[in-house]
Simulated scan of single mutants.
Amino acid sequence: MSLYFILLMASGAVPLLLSFDKRLQFYKKWKYVFPSILLVALVYIIFDVNLTNRGVWGFNPDYLSGIYLFSLPLEEILFFVVIPYASIFLHESIREYFPKLELQKSWNKGLLIALILINVLIAIFNADKSYTFYIALKLAVVLLLALLLNSRITRSFFITFGVILVPFLIVNGILTGSFIDGEVVWYNNRENLGLRFFTIPIEDFAYAFSMILYNLLLIEQLKKIVSK
């Protein structure tokens, strides 16, 4: 069993088991959660294949199963299902136990506008760096969507993401070379800012934030459609 697959199993096992907790009953939200995860995963996988083929990043075969789909390791495909599920579960769990934990509406709006402008500028001034440009633009778009939809999600997600970062730092840290010999996922630093938090490219934080937020916004919209 590959190291990458072990990390995914460790990340998804507990959230999956706790989905049946009597108070959380997260399994009842699966009809919204899984369609969202699969749709967002499809978009991210398409870009992942493109960036992998262009050498923006790649994978160390020593830590993989050797099974590939669309030029990507099987583990990388599963990443877009397991990690969003675990993250959404953690966000919803925090919201269940701390429903009042959220930013004020005015602060949330101001933060959204500021982050949109910052990421647009980052994209403009780093158009020659594929990963930086790609994720800055993707983050700006999802933040703009949250603003236009007048979604309340970011009011809590800006806070819960801080908790989600704890397992993120462990898993992504290992994937990028912390605690192991070499790395599971390598990055071409000519295609990013070259800034790292320990071994994690700074862009990965925006990558995780955008992917989870896209899911949360889509889940919110699916709930509205079903309730009509």
Rank of each mutant, 00 (worst) to 15 (best):
S2N: 12
F5H: 12
F5R: 01
I6Y: 11
I6C: 07
I6A: 12
I6M: 13
S11G: 08
G12E: 01
V14Y: 12
F20T: 08
R23M: 11
L24V: 14
K28H: 13
K31D: 10
K31N: 10
P35N: 01
I37K: 04
A41C: 07
V43Y: 11
V43M: 14
I46R: 05
F47I: 14
V49F: 02
V49K: 09
V49P: 13
N50G: 13
T52N: 07
T52M: 05
R54L: 11
V56Y: 07
V56Q: 03
W57Q: 02
P61G: 10
Y63C: 06
S65E: 05
S65R: 03
Y68K: 15
L74P: 01
I77F: 07
V82R: 00
P84T: 03
I88K: 00
H91T: 06
S93C: 14
S93N: 05
S93R: 10
I94T: 07
R95S: 10
E96V: 11
Y97R: 13
L101V: 09
L101K: 12
L101I: 10
Q104M: 14
K105Q: 12
K109Q: 12
L111S: 13
L112P: 11
V120H: 05
A123R: 06
A123K: 07
I124Q: 13
A127S: 15
I135Y: 04
I135R: 04
I135T: 07
L137Q: 11
K138C: 14
L139Y: 09
V142H: 08
A146S: 15
R152Q: 15
R155G: 14
I159V: 10
I164M: 06
N172R: 04
T176C: 08
G177S: 06
S178V: 06
F179W: 15
F179V: 12
D181N: 14
W186E: 06
R190E: 14
R190T: 10
L193A: 14
E203I: 05
D204I: 00
D204E: 11
F205Q: 00
A206P: 01
A208F: 09
Y214E: 08
N215G: 13
N215R: 01
L216V: 08
L216C: 06
L216G: 04
L216P: 02
L218W: 09
E220V: 00
I225Q: 10
